[in-house]
Nucleic acid binder design. Structure first.
Length: 462
DNA sequence: TCACTTTTTCT
DNA sequence: GAAAAAGTG
């Protein structure tokens, strides 16, 4: 009797350097499945990316991807029984929902005498592989990073899986039936500005190494420069493995540019690491001291922030970039987050949810870890008193105003000097630039100086 | 006293 | 990270 394996795609929508798939296709026949579990959180923008990515994946599997909707446990149990499956393979996930789900499924299958094998397909190192000498987990990024570099020597990547023996089942539903493509906002149109899928991810990595890496460390901070890799959505859906990126960048002679990029890539691993050791970090402050923090949570301010109508140009530019492109430059993510949490005194969870819904690269681990980092309540977080001054940040990192002018065109006629803080501009200059503050562009929703002082005062109470 | 740079402090 | 304080010529 021939051996039939089941391969379950999750956040690893690729064929190259996919350890679980690599093993699964060694069976005589393989059934490759994707299950859309509506209980699993996914943002509006991400749904579109997912739908496109699954389409690309299906193409590279010669249209043999089997798609289902519902409870993974029920579906997998049914499939294994109906098809006499002997082996089940997947790459591991690290959020609490997936861990619980996967361990239940594993147990169930093993009780049915099915062999379950799981692999690391999403991280440079798994959370339990990078520990301090006393076997406890790291709490500080830099120490974690040093250890990771030390114990992650070159691990050769796996070649593209040979997917010639796939079975297409009759009960597979069509991609359209997943209903991923009817969002309220125009994500459907916006996604067309992105190339989705494994091939696009590979190309992006090549282009990054060719054009951008040699100036990465310096240029990465300037939002108008397009100097970052933009690999984040590909990494989120596993269209490319972090290990492949690591190997491509971190070779014998690493410059400080290469090193810096690897640091950023390692932040992603550290986020997953934190999620693993603090499973509730999507809703709870890692640092419990912050549970007593008195937030204002003024929803009117939140709405202005979401709409990019705060009256602070760099903040509005960032929030509009997010809404118009499903992406935001990293430097600006820090600025708008700091503004929401510290100047507006709004709980990081509100910002985290908005980002999660609007980003194509929305990722529970990265998103929660980063918001907690900015808010100061995370492990090894930015100290709370570190408060960005958005006007100063704009002068430093968008000194020519290219980024602000692109997304806040109503003030584009202002001279560079005033672009970062139009509210300080003399009336005659405003008039010359065709701006009526409060009408064509808002006054700042909070005063930067007094809101900063208020935040520090609240923090002192902890 | 000034204009500018560097260091310290902020929880 | 930014503001305040201290240092410099």
């Amino acid at each position: 009797m021939s051996e039939i394996s089941l391969y379950w795609f999750r956040q690893d929508l690729r064929l190259t350097d996919n350890p679980a798939l690599h093993e699964a296709v060694k069976s005589d026949k393989t059934i490759a499945i994707y299950i859309h579990d509506e209980k699993y959180p996914i943002g509006s923008a991400s749904k579109l990316w997912l739908s496109k990515s699954l389409k690309k994946l299906d193409e590279s599997l010669n249209n043999k991807l089997n798609i289902y909707k519902g409870s993974p446990k029920d579906i997998i149990e049914k499939l294994t029984k109906e098809n006499n499956i002997t082996n089940v393979y997947w790459n591991r996930c690290y959020d609490k929902y997936s861990i619980k789900r996967d361990s239940e499924i594993k147990k169930l299958l093993q009780n049915n005498d099915i062999d379950v094998k799981t692999f690391n397909g999403s991280l440079l190192l798994e959370p339990w592989q990078c520990l301090k000498d006393d076997n406890t987990h790291y709490k500080v990024f830099t120490a974690f990073y040093k250890k990771l570099i030390q114990i992650k020597p070159y691990v050769p990547n796996l070649s593209k899986a040979n997917v010639i023996n796939l079975i297409k089942l009759e009960n597979s539903i069509s991609l359209e039936n997943l209903e991923l493509t009817k969002p309220k906002h125009s994500w459907q149109r916006i996604i067309n500005f992105w190339e989705v899928g494994e091939k696009a991810a590979q190309l992006k990595l090549e282009e990054f190494i060719e054009d951008k890496i040699n100036n990465y460390k310096e240029a990465r901070d300037y939002p108008s420069m397009d100097s970052t890799s933009k690999l984040s959505p590909h990494l989120h859906f596993g269209e490319i493995s972090p290990s492949q990126i690591f190997n491509a960048i971190y070779q014998n002679n690493v410059s400080s540019n290469h090193e810096h990029f690897i640091r950023e890539l390692t932040w992603r691993d550290f986020s997953y690491y934190l999620m693993y050791y603090y499973p509730d970090f999507d809703t709870k402050n890692i640092n419990e001291k912050f549970d007593n923090f008195e937030w204002d949570n003024n929803l009117k301010l939140l709405k202005r922030w979401q709409e990019g109508q705060t009256g602070i140009p760099i903040v509005d530019a960032g929030m509009r970039e997010l809404w118009q492109t499903g992406y935001m430059h990293n430097r600006v993510r820090m600025i708008v987050a700091s503004f929401l949490v510290k100047n507006c005194l709004i709980h990081w969870k509100y910002g985290e949810e908005w980002f999660f819904d609007c980003l194509f690269d929305a990722d529970i681990a990265n998103n929660c870890a980063s918001w907690q980092w900015v808010a100061g309540c995370g492990m090894d977080a930015a100290p709370y008193f570190r408060i960005f001054n958005p006007a100063l940040q704009a002068q430093k990192f968008d000194s020519k105003g290219d980024y602000i002018r692109k997304y806040v065109p109503e003030i584009s006629k202002l001279p560079n000097k005033y672009l970062a803080e139009p509210w300080t501009t003399k009336p005659e200059i405003l008039e010359k630039a065709n701006i009526q503050l409060g009408k064509t562009y808002p006054y700042p929703i909070v005063d930067l100086k007094t809101s900063r002082e208020k935040a520090l005062e609240q923090y002192k109470k902890l």
